[in-house]
Design a protein around this nucleic acid. Sequence first.
DNA 1: GGTCATTTGTACGTATGTATT
DNA 2: GAATACATACGTACAAATGAC
Lengths: 134, 134
Amino acid sequence: VSVDPRSDRPIYRQVADILRDQITNGTLAPGAMLPSEKALADTYGIGRDAARQAIAVLRSEGLVRTDKGHGTAVRAEGGRRALELVSGESVIARMPTESERYSLNLDEGVPVLVVHSVDGAALYSAEEIYITVR
Amino acid sequence: VSVDPRSDRPIYRQVADILRDQITNGTLAPGAMLPSEKALADTYGIGRDAARQAIAVLRSEGLVRTDKGHGTAVRAEGGRRALELVSGESVIARMPTESERYSLNLDEGVPVLVVHSVDGAALYSAEEIYITVR
DNA sequence: GGTCATTTGTACGTATGTATT
DNA sequence: GAATACATACGTACAAATGAC
């Protein structure tokens, strides 16, 4: 479990791979804290920049959540509820604008669903919803 | 159209705001190239780091696409086709894993749709699809 | 093909600010 | 207040990809 600076693969991606493995195999369970940036830098003999980038990769994948002054934790998979789509409605998925992310209080790496009906459009966190047919 | 280093809002977000405005109001039309990182840094009197972060914000929002050695361009809204959902199927939206992003050849900031049916699961680029009911 | 300028990517360093504990 | 941890912002340097010539 180490990084190779001579590899074609950037070291920040190598570190991201290691952490992603630990998340998917359960070594880092939902809610668990990742090592701090400094701890990662010391462990793998890399700069803080590379450690930060590794965590940023996981954040953009929606796998972890970072709180300033606290640290980075594995995101728990929130339970989803069914959204029943009826004839005449349509849905698109996209990334939120910054203001949408703020008002819906979304973490990074979480898409939104826009449901269009005759009444207009409604916005949901994509993470809380799965779509079915009535 | 300038940035204020003393503002509470980080300068890279101020620059991202300026560019986002230009994209949404059409000054930067789909396909148009954004200024290079160096050009942004010179224009606003900021470091290359801040310019890069500004562009990274827009990339994570799915607004632009960056090609190494070339530059950053406004992404064209791809035409979407209807995906007709039938009873017994369900859909979730999430960000792709790195390998999914690679195999589907997705830009950053593009979610995926996972359609579950009795036959199994199918994966789509969320940007090319809108969901309706048959 | 080869060279050169441009542009982005990676990686390091330092310093300071802000939030949490 | 102190220690820890992340955020912002600057700098440098070199690598890699692109495009023009």
